[in-house]
Design a protein around this nucleic acid. Structure first.
Lengths: 215, 215
DNA sequence: TATGTAATACGAGAAGTTCTCGTATTTGCG
DNA sequence: CGCAAATACGAGAACTTCTCGTATTACATA
C-alpha cells in the first residue's frame, strides 16, 4: 500500500510529489551530483541539527551551484524528504524482517525486542537519522510522509500480532502497536536498549506495582 | 534546580537567557502588548503549525510594530520559548501534584495513570501545546529548554519511585522514568489514554507474551 | 567528423524573511 | 512646565530560498 514509494523518491521528488516536478538525472555526472548533494545535506543536518542548514552551505560544500541544485530538487524540503524516505525504507525493511518469522505467541516478544534494537542500531549506524526525524517532525509537508510510514509499520505489527493471537481486540492492537512504535522511538531518543534484561526489569517493576489480572 | 525558571521566562527571555536581554515591560500598556503578542503567537502556531508563522503575522494581528515587538522579545525563538516555558510550568505542576501523594507501592500505578491523563487533558485544554512541542523539537535553542524540563520531570518520577521502593537499582529507575515520560508523550501524540482498562490490556498482553521472572 | 537538438550548468538577482537602529513620542517626576 | 528615561515606530539592512535567461555540454544522426 505504502510500499512502492521508495523508487519514486529516489528521483528527487521528496516529500510530496505535488511540487513542481524535476527531471531525473540520467547522465553519469548528474547522478553523482545528486548523491553528492544528499550526502552534504545529511552531513549538514547532523552538524547543525535538523533543517538548520542553508542551501548555500550545500552549494559551497558540493560546488554544485544553485541553478543545478534546484534542477534536481524542487525545494529544500525535497532534499530532506528524499533523505527521509531513503532511511525510512531501511526502517521498514528492518521491521518487516524482524516480524516475518513470527508464527507462535512466544515468537512475538523476541521480535519486538529485535525491532527496537534494529531501530536503535540503525540510528547508531546512521546518526543523521535522528536529525532527519527531527526535521520531518517539524515540517508539515514532510510529516505526511512520516505518518504514512508510521501507518505502514503499525500495520505490520498488527498483522503479526493477529497472526499469533487472532482474538486480540482492535483497541488493544492499536494501543499496542502505538506503544511499541513509541518504544522504538524512545530507544532512539533516549538510547534505551530493550534487551532482555532491561525489559525484564521494566516489566518486573510493573508487575510488582500492578497486581492486576489480565482481561 | 530547574524550578525557579518560570518567573524569569515571564519577562520574555525565552529559551536561552544568553541572548541580548530585553527590558521587562513595566508599564500597563507594555504588559498588555506583551500578552497580546504571546496570544497571537499561540493562535498562529495552532493555525499554521509549529514555527511556520511570520513575525509580520504577529505585527499585523496585534498592531504592535516590529520595533516594539523586538523590544519585548530578542528574537522569534524567544516568543516560542516563552510560550513553551509557560506551558511546561503547567506540566511540571501537574506531575508534581500527581506524584505528591505517592507513599506506598500501590499508590504508584494510579499516579502514573494520572500523569499520563493529566498530560493528555492538558493538551486537550491547550491545543497549542502540540505545536509548541513540535517547534521545540526542531529548534536547538528550544531543545535545551525541553531537555531541562524533561530532566526535572524525570527527577520527580525517580524520587517518587525511590520513596516507595528504595532498593530499586539506578538503571531500572532511569529506564523506567524515560519510558513513562515517553508514554505520556505518546498519550498526547497518539491520543492514547492510559486508563486502567487499556493499561491492563497492554500489560496483560505483555504478561501473556513474556513468562519471565522479574529480577 | 560535422551539425542540430536536447539536456545540463550557471549565478545574478527577485522575492520574501528576520531583525536593527536612528528618530519621534510618551511617561514620570521635580 | 521642562527634563530625562522609557517606549514606540517603521524603513531598510542582512540574510534566506528559489527563479530565469543565457551559456555550455552531451549525444544522436548523417
Amino acid at each position: 500500500m505504502a510500499t512502492q514509494k521508495a523508487d519514486k523518491a529516489a528521483i528527487g521528488e521528496g516529500a510530496l510529489g505535488a511540487a513542481r516536478p524535476r527531471l531525473a538525472p540520467t547522465q553519469q555526472r548528474s547522478r553523482e551530483r545528486f548523491e553528492k548533494i544528499l550526502a552534504a545535506a545529511a552531513d549538514l543536518m547532523a552538524e547543525k541539527g535538523g533543517e538548520a542548514f542553508r542551501m548555500s552551505d550545500i552549494v559551497q560544500r558540493t560546488g554544485v551551484p544553485f541553478g543545478s541544485l534546484y534542477q534536481y530538487f524542487p525545494d529544500k524540503t525535497a532534499v530532506i524528504g528524499t533523505l527521509a524516505e531513503r532511511y525510512n525504507a531501511v526502517g521498514r525493511e528492518c521491521v518487516a524482517r524482524d516480524l516475518a518469522d513470527v508464527a507462535a505467541p512466544d515468537d512475538l516478544y523476541p521480535a519486538l525486542c529485535r525491532i527496537v534494537d534494529s531501530y536503535y542500531q540503525m540510528f547508531l549506524d546512521e546518526p543523521v537519522m535522528r536529525h532527519i526525524w527531527q526535521a520531518t517532525q517539524a515540517d508539515r509537508a514532510l510529516q505526511a510522509l512520516d505518518e504514512e510510514d508510521g501507518a505502514f509499520l503499525s500495520g505490520l505489527l498488527c498483522e503479526a500480532v493477529r497472526r499469533v493471537a487472532p482474538q486480540t481486540p482492535d483497541a488493544t492492537l492499536e494501543t499496542f502497536s502505538q506503544l511499541i512504535m513509541t518504544l522504538a522511538a524512545a530507544a532512539v531518543r533516549h538510547a534505551i536498549t530493550l534487551d532482555a534484561e532491561a525489559a525484564g526489569r521494566f516489566l518486573g517493576l510493573f508487575k510488582a506495582m500492578l497486581p492486576r489480572t489480565p482481561p
